[in-house]
Design a protein around this nucleic acid. Structure first.
Length: 333
DNA sequence: GTTGAGCGTT
């Protein structure tokens, strides 16, 4: 129709951006949200009443007020939960900044030639970034290299780059990895899991997942039942979890507090988080298969809850693990 | 004096 573009702004006082309209004079919400991510509609100040007025929205199509869009500046609407959009973006970038400042860890260097010295290591790795420590592990008596060492970089980005590739050092291919000591078998999830305190009962696992997604990939959300005013959220990246610790975040209008998830001992929950299902995951197990009784009873300790389960005859440990996985899945969705 | 998947004497 008349206008090719309408003027849209984040706020009345912000500089407007021109958004293209369609041939029939309508504007697609997707056109708006392409420039204003998360937008769910438009409003404008009615020149006569001086009141804000909503723009008609039907199935993703925004319709001009009266007959034309005129020369008004339209203001973006965000979902109520996203009212604090700017603050959330700030929080997200704060996490990124924090992540940039995250301290590096020693990396183990595997496969070193016997002859490689610490100076050799330093010379090689300095081509990636500032090296702040190198070690070649040697036999105490003979002084011979054990064929592996450690390196520490000043920069987290350097560390990431170095881990991602193989390294030709003095004629041998070597690998750099996070040492196992960084993910000790006793407390492997401490760094990837956060404790969310002051939760309210209306917060669902989906709510939490949706909210925490903005910081990074969420691999698990756990809300104890019955309601106990806290939850656990596990991220794929431990750096994200670490960065959030200590923060007060607003979820559904409620201030929740983020802290480190207290590492627990070898309970079933952690065994499962690790993808290491096993009999050790049960705090107790009772088998009953006497006198034709072909059922197995299990008392499963799952986080702080106990589940008493009755299973069909379990013929093998392998089958038992399959059952456990099913149970685990059921308690997760 | 050897070796080749792994995990760090202080």
């Amino acid at each position: 129709m008349s206008e090719l573009y309408i003027r849209v702004a984040e706020d009345e006082n912000e500089e407007p951006m021109e958004i293209p309209s369609e041939d029939d004079g309508t504007v697609l919400l997707s056109s708006v949200s392409a420039q204003f991510p998360g937008a769910c509609g438009l409003r404008y100040r009615n020149p006569e009443s001086q009141c804000m007025r909503g723009v008609r929205l039907v199935e993703g199509v925004l319709h001009a007020p009266e007959s034309s869009w005129g020369n008004l500046v339209y203001v973006v609407n965000y979902p109520k939960d996203n009212k604090r959009k700017m603050e959330e973006i700030d929080a997200a970038s704060a996490v990124k900044i924090k992540r940039g400042f995250q301290k590096t860890s020693d990396l183990i260097v595997l496969g070193l030639p016997w002859k490689t010295t610490e100076q050799d290591l330093k010379d090689y790795f300095s081509t990636f970034g500032e090296v702040i420590m190198v070690q070649v592990k040697r036999d105490a008596k003979t002084g011979n290299s054990k064929g592996f060492g450690f390196v520490r970089f000043a920069d987290y980005e350097t560390q990431t780059k170095v881990i991602a590739q193989r390294h030709m050092i003095d004629g041998r291919w070597c690998d750099c990895k996070l040492p196992n000591s960084k993910a000790s078998p006793d407390e492997p999830m401490r760094s990837r899991k956060i404790f969310v305190g002051r939760c309210t009962e209306d917060m669902t696992t989906d709510d939490l997942r949706q909210y925490f997604m903005q910081y990074g990939e969420v691999t698990d959300v756990f809300i104890p039942k019955p309601f106990r005013a806290f939850a656990f959220v596990t991220f794929a990246d431990d750096q994200v979890a670490q960065a959030l610790c200590g923060e007060d975040l607003i979820i559904k209008g409620v201030s929740v507090h983020i802290s480190n998830a207290e590492p627990k001992h070898n309970n079933s929950r952690q065994m499962m988080d690790r993808g290491r299902f096993g009999a050790g995951g049960f705090s107790q197990g009772y088998g009953s298969n006497r006198g034709g009784l072909s059922r197995l009873f299990l008392l499963v300790h799952y986080d702080m809850d106990l589940f008493f389960l009755s299973l069909p005859l379990v013929k093998s440990a392998k089958l038992l693990l399959i059952y456990v996985k099913i149970i685990y899945t059921c308690h997760h969705k």
